[in-house]
Simulated assay, not measured.
Amino acid sequence: MNRRLRIGLLAVGGLLMGILVAALVATYVVLQPERFTAMLQSRAEEAGLDLGLASPASPTLWPKPALELEGLTLRARGSGTPLIVASRGKLVLPWRTLLGQDTTVSRLEVEGARIDMDAVSAYIDTLPSRPSTAGAILPGIDAGFRVTRGTLTRGNRLLLSNVDIDAGRLADGRVFDLRLAASSSEKPYSMTLRTRPVLSRGVLTLNDLTLDLASQDRFAASLRGEATWRGGADVGASLAGRMTRHDASPFDVVLNVTPANQQDPLFVALKLDGPTDHADLRVPPLAVAEWWSGINAGGAPTLPPLLGSVDAAAIDTDSVHIKGLHIRATPDVTPVIAPASASTAARPATGLMP
């Protein structure tokens, strides 16, 4: 290589390096990471939360303008236990941010997040309660968000692992998509929700609602319908669809939610109809939640507060195998369970005969 060509290549390389350094400096100056960090912390403070970062945010331009965040911690003000701890995050920004004025965030991405449900519940309890007569609200989410490699815990107890949440912008009249995947006891589950929320005169309607639930090699359900919320416990929904099962006959599914009134609590009515299995249940979700809390607190094992009937030719769930199961549950009457035969992988199980 002659001397003139070598000098030319070095000059071009130096020029490119200068342009790159100038671009990085300009990116930092234009994006001004400290203003976005201050904006996030200010919004957290407005909600009674403290947001901490292990190191200052760093800007990047590829593949889109963004700010990299390291070591995120979000906790309720005055609380020692964080609601969320994440190894890293990213604020994806629109290109117009490079003009230097706009502080809009188009997407929030969080990786390695640990969410403590006890801390979240404690924070929710500190929020001011809304009057029971207040209408519905739609909490707007200006930016979409993504959580990857997350875990859901209750104190030191693991609830869900491999949590992946992907949601779009939530706004009145705009189609909203939510995808959730997680593992429980090493079994993967997924949920996809799509709807178009409309808020009018204190009534929130979820139009064109589609709900898909699945567990790999176990079942898949797809429901369609709509839901409404008028505030408080005034919730209604009507969904119908089909559930397929691995190595078993499919179900037709009808799901209805009836709001609470002066006589009855909020109920979820579920009907399953298959060639050999049928279920017609009414589930009071608040009572079930209270029952489940009692079980977790070490209370005596009891049957869940369900109403209705179940007729199943066979139930095969993990180590539990039941044949000829019949359940009848009516108000103020202990449910009667009549299995023809039941067994588990560990030891025989017995049922109550009517």
Score class of each variant (00 low, 15 high):
Pro285Arg: 05
Ser121Trp: 09
Pro335Tyr: 09
Asn207Gln: 08
Met353Lys: 15
Asp280Asn: 07
Leu266Met: 06
Ala171Thr: 04
Arg347Gln: 04
Ala312Arg: 05
Val175Cys: 09
Leu307Phe: 01
His321Asp: 02
Thr97Pro: 10
Gly140Ser: 10
Lys64Ile: 10
Ala214Gln: 15
Tyr28Leu: 12
Thr126His: 07
Arg224Ser: 14
Val85Phe: 09
Ala66Val: 07
Asn2His: 08
Ala340Tyr: 12
Gly225Asp: 02
Glu68Cys: 14
Arg196Phe: 05
Pro188Asn: 02
Ser341Cys: 03
Thr153Ala: 07
Ser183Arg: 03
Thr228Ser: 14
Gly18Cys: 10
Gly225Tyr: 08
Val12Gly: 13
Ser319Gln: 10
Leu74Cys: 03
Ala11Asp: 10
Asp217Met: 14
His321Arg: 08
Val320Gly: 06
Pro305Tyr: 00
Asp318Lys: 13
Ser343Ile: 03
Phe176Thr: 00
Arg224Phe: 03
Pro131Val: 03
Arg35Asp: 01
Asp234Pro: 04
Ala289Trp: 07
Ser200Cys: 09
Ala76Arg: 01
Gly173Gln: 05
Gln216Ser: 08
Arg35Ile: 01
Leu72Ser: 01
Thr195His: 00
Pro63Leu: 11
Thr104His: 11
Val257Glu: 04
Ala342Asp: 10
Pro259Asp: 11
Ala346Cys: 08
Ser343Lys: 04
Leu204Gln: 05
Gly13Asp: 05
Leu49Thr: 04
Thr317Trp: 13
Lys187Tyr: 14
Thr334Met: 08
Phe36Glu: 15
Pro131Asn: 06
Arg88Asp: 06
Leu9Arg: 07
Gly202Gln: 05
Trp292Cys: 15
Glu290Cys: 13
Val268Pro: 03
Ser341Gly: 09
Ile315Met: 01
Arg201Glu: 04
Met353Phe: 09
Ala338Asp: 15
Arg107Cys: 06
Ser238Thr: 15
Phe219Thr: 01
Ile19Tyr: 12
Val105Ala: 00
Asp316Asn: 13
Leu209Glu: 02
Ser343Ala: 03
Thr81Leu: 00
Asp247Thr: 11
Ser238Cys: 13
Arg149Val: 05
Pro59Trp: 00
Arg196Pro: 04
Thr228Asp: 01
Ile322Gly: 07
Ala233Lys: 04
Ala300Tyr: 14
Leu24Glu: 07
Val85Thr: 03
Leu10Arg: 12
Gly140Trp: 06
Leu108Val: 10
Ala346Leu: 14
Ala143Thr: 03
Glu109Leu: 09
Met39His: 15
Gly298Trp: 06
Val85Ile: 10
Ala297Asn: 06
Thr210Ser: 12
Phe36Asn: 13
Ser238Asp: 01
Leu98Lys: 12
Leu31Ile: 06
Ala287Leu: 02
Arg328Ala: 10
Val336Ser: 06
Ala54Arg: 15
Asp212Glu: 14
Gly155Cys: 02
Val110Thr: 09
Ser79Glu: 02
His326Cys: 13
Ala314Lys: 04
Asp217Asn: 08
Leu53Ala: 00
Leu303Thr: 10
Ala136Tyr: 04
Leu5Cys: 11
Arg130Pro: 05
Arg75Phe: 06
Ala240Ile: 14
Asn162Gly: 09
Leu5Trp: 04
Ala313Pro: 11
Gly274Trp: 04
Leu199Cys: 07
Arg130Ile: 11
Leu306Glu: 14
Glu46Asp: 12
Ala345Val: 15
Lys64Gly: 12
Arg146Val: 14
Gln32Leu: 02
Gly150Arg: 01
Gly140Pro: 05
Leu99Gly: 07
Pro63Gly: 06
